[in-house]
Design a protein around this nucleic acid. Structure first.
Lengths: 193, 193
DNA sequence: TAAATTAAATACCGATTGGTATCAAATATT
DNA sequence: AATATTTGATACCAATCGGTATTTAATTTA
């Protein structure tokens, strides 16, 4: 060891994450990054490799905290139906009307990079799979407690809710009329009945 | 009038559309465009204004043909339930497993540009609204014929199906396991019952 | 205190970016 | 045939791109 770091690596990564989240990979330049991260260009390269390495680190940080947030959110409620209702309605309450609405960093990255870069195809796919596992855990809890009908296919329903969440997240980026999201959430929740 | 065009404007625009569809706005360079369109750089600028003008023309061409395709597809079947079932299943049959899967040009543009450019926020939002009108027409047909239950909220269900289509289109770009899309389509179609 | 090691800052690299000025070729009008 | 007009092709522009070489500053170890 010799001279110690003067910048906080986690704080710098957070700043990069925010910027990539807002602008995507291609539209974000190294100059954007250095000014927002508050560090010099060579510090980025020595710490994160290259631009894509920094992007990957930022996306991994996002997905892990995103998954933890969702899991905690769903465990917050003893009723499973109520937990999903609150989850979707809180998400709409939090995101609807935002201008600009940056959406979900992982979905943005999926759309921009998955067809061109297998690493990000896999990374983003696995996040969706992980979310479906979190959803399935919650549905299984409802099956065990007897709250949900035993005829329900837990895995299938969990996957359905993940795809629904993606649709909801994406359409909100276009700031649609309110009925669009309200109707959707209402219809989707009937699948739990 | 003087010297006539040597290139076919529609063919050139088709080539640009394909390229923007695959790579998005930022990642597509003028050099990419000239080589794929088969015309010189000044021809692009004199015909379409600038890069963003060309992108907009390409996107408008896509959305109008996309909407026409979907409308024709749904009118193809006398049974409304069967029409939606065939529509979603054909889409999966057509798109699942494609590698790379470029998804939907309009959704890609929504995700990349809507938060940064109001013109594209509006353009992409209005396409989703237009799709919901096409879906609603079809649902109304089912209500009139008595095939669908009168308790159905046609507009709400149509909007739900549009958001579902978005979710399905996006997740297929990450090439998920087959059950993901099959379960989703199956669950969504129960909303018509 | 001297040597070794690592970080930070400046300055720079060739390549590519979106966009144009210029000019010759081709057609319509007179 | 002469003129006006628009096309297409070449060459070019400043600005920015992602990425590095080099030097100076700071710290640990010996």
């Amino acid at each position: 060891m010799a001279r110690p770091r003067e910048f906080d690596e986690e704080k710098a990564l957070d700043a990069a994450m925010q910027l990539f989240w807002e602008k995507g990979f291609e539209a974000t330049s190294l100059s954007d990054l250095t000014s927002r991260m508050g560090i010099q260009r060579p510090s980025i390269y020595s710490t994160f490799g290259d631009k894509k390495g920094l992007f990957e680190a930022a996306l991994r940080k996002y997905t892990s905290s995103h998954a933890a947030y969702i899991r905690a959110n769903l465990q917050n409620n003893s009723s499973v139906k109520e937990a999903f209702r609150a989850f979707f309605e809180n998400m709409v309450a939090r995101e609807y009307g935002k201008s600009p609405n940056w959406g979900c960093f992982c979905i943005n990255s999926l759309v921009e990079l998955a067809p061109h870069d297998e690493k990000f195809e896999i990374l983003t796919r696995e996040h969706q799979m992980y979310l479906s596992v979190i959803f399935q855990e919650t549905i299984d809890r409802g099956l065990r407690s007897g709250e949900l009908d035993t005829g329900i296919n837990a895995k299938g329903l969990a996957q359905t809710l993940v795809v629904s969440l993606i649709g909801l997240t994406v359409i909100m980026k276009s700031r649609p009329e309110r009925s669009f999201v309200d109707n959707f959430v209402k219809e989707i929740l009937t699948l739990l009945k």
